[in-house]
Design a protein around this nucleic acid. Structure first.
Lengths: 210, 210, 210, 210
DNA sequence: GATGAATGAGCTTTCATTCAT
DNA sequence: GATGAATGAAAGCTCATTCAT
C-alpha cells in the first residue's frame, strides 16, 4: 500500500470529478464530452474509464456526496426547527434551491431522470432513493406546517405542488449566466415570498374545506 | 415568379415544419436528426437548409405559429372571462400546461433559452417578444385576481411565482412516457389545486400585509 | 435523374466495394477498419455509411454477387455434367476452392458465421440461404456419385464429410502469402486426389455395408 | 535467490497460464483481454508482462504444454496400436479433434499462423516444430495404414488430405455454442465415418493405381 | 428550387502496453 | 518481483452541414 500512489490516484479521481462537476454545471451533461473532461482534469480521457464505468457513472458518483450532504442538511434543519415548521420549510427550500443552482448538473439528476426507472440494482437506484427520501422529508415538513394527516391524498398533492414551485424556481435559472449567489441575492425575496404564499394558500384552502 | 413554383415551394416548407413539429413534439429537439425530418417531410435534408439557416432556426420558426395561436387563445380567455378573473387564470394555466405537454419542444423554447439573449436582430428576438407578451397577459390576470396595482413590485413577484409553478408542472413531466392527455387527466386535480392554492395565498398575503 | 451524379455515386460505391474486397481478402474482415477502407477507396469513412448500413452489411453486399455467381457456376456444372457426376463433383470442388482462395473474406461468410442464426429478416438470411442452396447442390452431386438415397442419413453424413475436406483445404491456406492461383497450381493435384480418394471411399464403404 | 520468492513467482506464472488457458479455451483468444486474464489469475495485468513479452507470447507459451501433452498422447497411441494402424489412426484423429474443440484457441495456433513464418528465433518456431512433429506422426500412421513408402509424394499428399479433413472438422465447429463433449457425442459417428471412408479411399486408390 | 454526394468533427468506449514506484 | 496509474491508438458510428449540379 504505497502512500504516494494512493494519493496520486485520489488526486486524479478528484480532479476528474472536479472537472466534470464544473463542466456539467456550466454546460450540462450532454454537451460535455469525455475528452473535454479529461482535458480540464489534466489527464487522458482513457484515465476516466479507470475510475468510472462510463459517463453516466461519473455523473452519478459526482452527485452522490452532494446529495448526501444535502440530505444531511435537510435532516439538521428538520431537527433544529422542530418547533417552527414554517421556518424549517423555508430553510429547506432555500437550501434546495441554492444547492440546485450551485450544482446545475443536479437539475438533470433531480428532474430529468425518469423516476420510475428502478432496475433494482442500477446505480440510479441509490440516487432515486435519496431523491425519494428528500421528497419524504419535504412532505413531513409540509405536514407539520399544515397539520394534514400523514399519508393523506391532500398532503401528497400539496407536497407535489410545493415541489413544482421549487422545480420551477430552479429550472427558470438553469441557463442563466448569473452565478448561484447572484441569483440567490437578487431573487431571495421573491423566493421567500413564494414559500410563504404557497403555505398560506395551503392553510387557507384546508381551512375553507372544513 | 411563376405561381406554380411558389406554391410548390411553400408546400415544401410547410411539410418540413409539419414534420419537424411532429417529431420534435414526440421525441424532443435533440433526439431528432435533420435527416429524419427530411424523410418525414418527403424531401432531401439539404432542402431544409434552403428554408432554414440551421436546426435551431427551424425550431424557432416552427414555434412561431403555435406561440401565436397560444397567445390568441390567451387573449380570448382574457376577453371572455373578464368578469371572472379567477376563472381566466385557471383556464389560461390549463391552456399553457396542455400546450407545453403537447409540444415538448416548447419547453426548450420557453424555459431553456436564456431570456437575456436579445441580439436585437436574432430570430430569438421574436420569440422572446411573444414570451414576454404572454407573461404580460398572465400578469394582468394575476392583477385582476389580486387587485394589486399595475406595475407594482409585488405584482411582478407574484406573477413570477405563479410562473415558477407552471414551469415546474411542465418540467416535471418533460420526460414522462405518458401522453399529454394522460397526464392532464391524471393530474388535472392536482394542477387545479395548485392554481387555487397559490391564488388563495396571494390574496391572504396581500390582505395580511395591509 | 441527373446522369452525372448517378454515375459518380455508382463509382464511389464500387470503389468502396473494391477497396473492402481487396482489404478483406488480404487481411481479413476483423483486421480491416472502416477508415482504412475509406482511405483505400479514396473517400471519407462517413461516406461508406451512406452506402452501407454498417460494416457487416458491407461485407454481406460485397459477398452477394460473388456468391450468386458461384451458385450459377455450380448450376452450370451440374447441368453440363449430368452424365458424369464424378466430373461434376470435381469441377464443383475446384470452383469452390478457387472461389474461397480468391475471396478470402468468404471464409468468414461461409465458415465463421453460426449457421443457425436465422432472424428471418436479417441480411444474413440471404447469405445463409445461398449457402444452404450450395450445400444442397453439393449433396445432389454426391448423391449422383454414390447412388445413395435422397434424404438418407448417410448421404447427409457423406456430404458433411466432403464439406469438411473442402473447408480444410480452404482453411489451411487462409493465411498463406501465396496467391490463389499459385496455390491452385501448386496444390491442384493434391486437391484432385482428395476429391477422388474421398469419393472412392464413399463408394467402397457403401458397397461393403450392403 | 531466496527459495520462497522463487516459488511464489512460479506460482504466479502458473496462475496466469491457467487463467489464460481457461479463458482462451472458452471465449477465444481475441475476445479475452489482458485485464480479464489478470483478474482471473489474481494478479495485476502488468504482472503478466513480466513473464510474457505480449499477449501472443502468452498464447504461445500457454500452448506449449498442451501441445507436448498431445504429442505424448499421439506417441502412446502409436506405440500401443502398432499392430493395428487403422485403430491408431482413428484414435489419433479423435484425440486431435477433441483437443482442438477443447482448446479452441489451439485452432489459432494450429491453423491460423502462417506455417512458413520461421524467423528462426521466434517463439513460433517451437510451436511450428511440434506441429511438424505431429504431422510427421500422422504421416507415419497413414503410412502404416496404407503401406505407402516413407517419403513418397503420395504419402505426403494423402497425409495432407487427411489433415484437411481434420482441419475442416475442427474448423466447422469453431464458433459453435455446443461444448466439446456435446459436439463429440453428436458427431462421433460422422467423424468416425470420415476417418474410415478416407482410409478406404486411400487404399482403393493405391490399389487401383498399381 | 431542389438534391444527392460527400465530409470533418465529434462521440463513447476498449485495448494492449509502458512507466514510476 | 510486483503493481497501480496512466496513456495513445484505434475502433465503429452519427451528425449537422456544405458543395456541385
Amino acid at each position: 500500500m504505497p502512500r504516494k500512489k494512493q494519493v496520486r490516484s485520489e488526486d486524479t479521481k478528484r480532479d476528474i470529478l472536479a472537472a466534470a462537476g464544473k463542466l456539467f454545471a456550466v454546460r450540462g451533461y450532454d454537451a460535455v464530452s469525455m475528452r473535454e473532461i479529461a482535458k480540464e482534469a489534466g489527464c487522458s480521457h482513457t484515465t476516466i474509464y479507470i475510475y468510472f464505468e462510463d459517463k453516466e457513472a461519473l455523473l452519478n458518483e459526482l452527485s452522490m456526496p452532494s446529495l448526501l450532504k444535502l440530505k444531511e442538511n435537510f435532516g439538521e434543519v428538520f431537527q433544529h426547527e422542530r418547533e417552527n415548521p414554517q421556518n424549517a420549510l423555508k430553510q429547506i427550500s432555500q437550501l434546495f434551491i441554492r444547492f440546485c443552482l450551485l450544482n446545475r448538473n443536479m437539475y438533470r439528476i433531480f428532474f430529468e431522470v425518469k423516476a420510475e426507472r428502478v432496475d433494482e440494482d442500477s446505480p440510479e437506484m441509490e440516487i432515486n432513493q435519496i431523491r425519494n427520501q428528500l421528497f419524504g422529508l419535504l412532505m413531513q415538513v409540509v405536514r407539520d406546517c399544515t397539520g394534514l394527516m400523514e399519508g393523506s391524498e391532500r398532503l401528497l398533492a400539496y407536497t407535489r405542488i410545493y415541489f413544482y414551485m421549487l422545480h420551477g424556481m430552479v429550472g427558470t435559472y438553469q441557463y442563466s449566466e448569473e452565478t448561484a449567489e447572484e441569483l440567490m441575492q437578487r431573487l431571495a425575496d421573491t423566493f421567500d415570498e413564494g414559500f410563504e404564499v404557497l403555505l398560506l394558500g395551503f392553510r387557507e384552502k384546508t381551512k375553507s374545506d372544513h
